[in-house]
Measured scan of single mutants.
Amino acid sequence: KELVLVLYDYQEKSPRELTVKKGDILTLLNSTNKDWWKIEVNGRQGFVPAAYLKKL
Rank of each mutant, 00 (worst) to 15 (best):
L29R: 04
Y8P: 00
P49C: 03
D24G: 05
G46F: 08
W37I: 02
F47P: 00
N42L: 11
E40R: 06
N30T: 08
F47K: 03
E17P: 09
K22N: 05
I25R: 05
E2L: 13
V4N: 00
Y52A: 11
L26P: 04
V4G: 02
T27P: 13
K22C: 07
E17R: 08
L3G: 03
L26Y: 14
R16M: 15
Y52L: 10
N33F: 08
K22H: 07
F47A: 03
N33P: 04
K21R: 15
Q11C: 10
Y8W: 13
V41Q: 14
P15R: 08
E17W: 05
Q45V: 13
T27A: 09
Y8Q: 13
N30R: 07
N30Q: 10
R44N: 13
K22I: 04
N33G: 11
K54C: 14
K1I: 14
E40V: 08
P49V: 02
T27S: 09
T19M: 06
K13V: 08
L5V: 12
V4E: 00
V4T: 02
E12H: 14
V48L: 08
T27F: 13
S31M: 09
S31P: 05
W36A: 04
E40S: 08
E2N: 13
P15V: 11
D9P: 05
V4Q: 00
E17M: 06
E17C: 07
W37V: 02
A50E: 03
L53R: 00
P15M: 09
Y8F: 15
L28A: 03
L26V: 15
T27K: 10
R44C: 07
V41A: 15
K1T: 14
L56P: 02
T32S: 14
V20N: 00
E12W: 08
D9N: 11
P15H: 13
N30A: 11
D9H: 06
E2F: 12
Q45L: 07
K54L: 15
L26Q: 05
K34L: 12
D35F: 15
D9I: 01
K38W: 14
K22L: 04
L7W: 03
A50S: 13
L28N: 01
D24H: 07
Y52I: 12
I25K: 05
V4L: 04
N33K: 07
R44D: 06
T32C: 11
L7F: 02
R44L: 12
L28E: 01
I25Q: 04
T27I: 14
D9A: 06
K54N: 06
V48A: 05
V41F: 15
R16V: 12
I39M: 06
K13A: 13
A50T: 07
D24K: 04
G23M: 03
P15E: 13
I39H: 00
V6N: 00
Y8A: 15
N33V: 05
I25Y: 05
E2C: 11
A50W: 02
T19R: 06
S14Y: 07
E17N: 08
K13M: 13
E17S: 08
Y8K: 14
E40W: 07
L29N: 03
P15Y: 09
W36D: 02
S31R: 08
E2W: 11
Y8E: 13
P49M: 03
K54V: 13
G23W: 05
R16I: 14
I25A: 02
K22M: 08
N42R: 09
L53E: 00
L28I: 05
P49W: 03
